[in-house]
Amino acid sequence: MRLRPLAVFFLLASQPALAITFQTRLENVEWTVTGDKFECRLAQPVSQFGSGEFVRRAGEQATFQLSARERWMGPGSATLLAAAAPWQPGRGDINLGRVTVGDGEVPFTSSQEQAARLMTGLLEGRSPVVRHRTAMGGDSLEVRLLPARFGKAYEEYLTCTLGLLPVNYDQIRQSQIGFPSGGVELEPLSQAKLDIILQYLEADPSVNRITLDGHSDNSGNRLTNRDLSRRRAQAVMDYLTGQGIPAEQITLRFHGERYPLVANNNAANRAQNRRVTLRLDREAVVSEQPAIAPD
C-alpha cells in the first residue's frame, strides 16, 4: 500500500487555533546534494510543502531557507529552532531567533550563524523547525526537517564546497584595485586580487564586459593626475589581456582626481584614492576594439 505524505493537523491543548505541521515520514526522509563552482545546496524535501535547504554560495558561508510550492506562510516574523528529538530525554529545543518572512517561493533566508547552528544540531540529532502562522487565517504552522540520513549527505555537501570558487559575482562585480604607493605598477596585493577575479571570469563566460576607471589623488597638477590615472587603468588592462581576456571586452577610462573615494585630507585617504575601479557586466559585446576615453 502506498504511504501518504505526512501533513498532520492537530489541536494544541493550550491554544484554540488550529496548528498545521509539515513533516515527511521518517521512512521517506532523504537529503539531496547539488552544486557546481558557484553554489552548493543540501536539501530535504518536505511532504506537501516544498523543501528545506542549506545554500552556500561561493565566497560565503551557508544560509538556510524554505522553498514552498504554495504560499503557506504569511508575512511577518517566524521562529527558528534546533529542536530536540523525542528520543533525547533531557534535551530542550534551542531557539535560534527570528527570521523575517516575506512573499514568494522562498519566504525567508536565515543568517549564516543560524544556518551553522542548524547544521551542528542536525549532526547531534536535532531537527530544524520553523514555527509561524499560515497566510490564510493566521493559524499556527510548523515545518520540521528530520536528521535521518543526514551524515552521509553532509559529507557529500562538504565535498561540493571544496570545489567552490573563492568569490561570487556580487562580491567582485565592482572592485577597487589599489595603487597606494603612488606609482603606476601593479603591486602584489593588487595582482592577487586580479588573479581571483580572473579565476571567476574563467568559470563564468557570461561576464563579457569589463570597465576600468583610473583615478588619482590631488597631489599633483590636474594634467599629471589625469595621466597617472590613465597609466594605472592601462596597467590593469595589460595584466588582464596578458592573462587571456580579449581586449575588445574592456573599456578603459580615466578621471584624474575628479572622483575621490574619500576626502584628500591626509596621507591614508590619498592612498585610497589612487586606484582603478573594475566593474564587471553581463552585456553583449558592441565594439571590436577597446574604448579609451577620459570620462
Rank of each mutant, 00 (worst) to 15 (best):
G244T: 06
R275G: 07
V236Q: 07
R230K: 12
E248R: 04
M237P: 06
G220N: 10
T241V: 11
A247D: 14
V286P: 00
N208A: 12
R253W: 00
F254C: 06
D227L: 06
I197G: 14
I177E: 14
Q272W: 01
T277V: 10
T277N: 13
R226E: 14
D281G: 10
V276D: 08
F179P: 15
N273L: 01
L212E: 06
G182F: 05
L280E: 13
N225F: 00
S229F: 00
T161Y: 02
L212W: 05
P180D: 09
D170H: 12
V285H: 00
L201S: 14
N168C: 14
I196W: 07
Y259R: 15
R231E: 15
G214I: 01
D217G: 01
S229M: 03
R270F: 03
A268V: 07
P180I: 00
R282K: 15
Y169D: 15
L223A: 10
H255E: 11
V236M: 04
V236T: 08
R173M: 05
Y169K: 10
G214W: 01
A192Y: 00
A271S: 08
E187N: 11
V286R: 14
T251M: 04
L212F: 03
Q249D: 08
R173F: 04
Q234Y: 00
L194E: 14
E187F: 03
S190E: 08
I245M: 09
T211G: 13
E187K: 04
Q191N: 11
Q234P: 01
N208Y: 01
L278C: 09
P180A: 06
R279A: 13
Q174R: 15
T277D: 15
R231I: 02
L280T: 09
I197C: 09
T277A: 12
A267Y: 13
G183I: 03
S190H: 03
R232H: 06
A271K: 07
R270N: 12
R226G: 02
N265R: 07
A263M: 05
A192S: 12
Y200G: 13
D281F: 01
S229P: 10
A263G: 06
P260S: 13
E187T: 03
A192C: 04
Q176M: 11
A192Q: 15
R253Q: 12
S287A: 10
V286I: 10
S206D: 13
V276F: 02
L278W: 01
N208M: 03
E288L: 06
D227W: 01
P166C: 06
G163Q: 12
I177M: 09
T211D: 12
D213Y: 00
L278H: 11
H255N: 11
E187L: 09
L194H: 11
Q234W: 03
L165S: 13
T224E: 15
Q191D: 10
I250T: 07
L186M: 09
S206P: 08
F254V: 07
P205Y: 01
N218G: 14
S219Q: 13
L223I: 04
D238T: 05
V236E: 03
N218H: 10
A192H: 10
R226W: 02
N269T: 00
G214A: 05
R230W: 05
S190P: 14
R222I: 01
H215E: 12
A203Y: 03
T277L: 09
Y239V: 00
A233K: 00
P246H: 01
E185F: 00
R253E: 08
R274I: 02
E288Q: 04
Y169N: 12
L165D: 15
N225H: 04
A203C: 09
V262L: 10
P188V: 02
A235Y: 00
P246Q: 04
R226D: 06
Q171A: 14
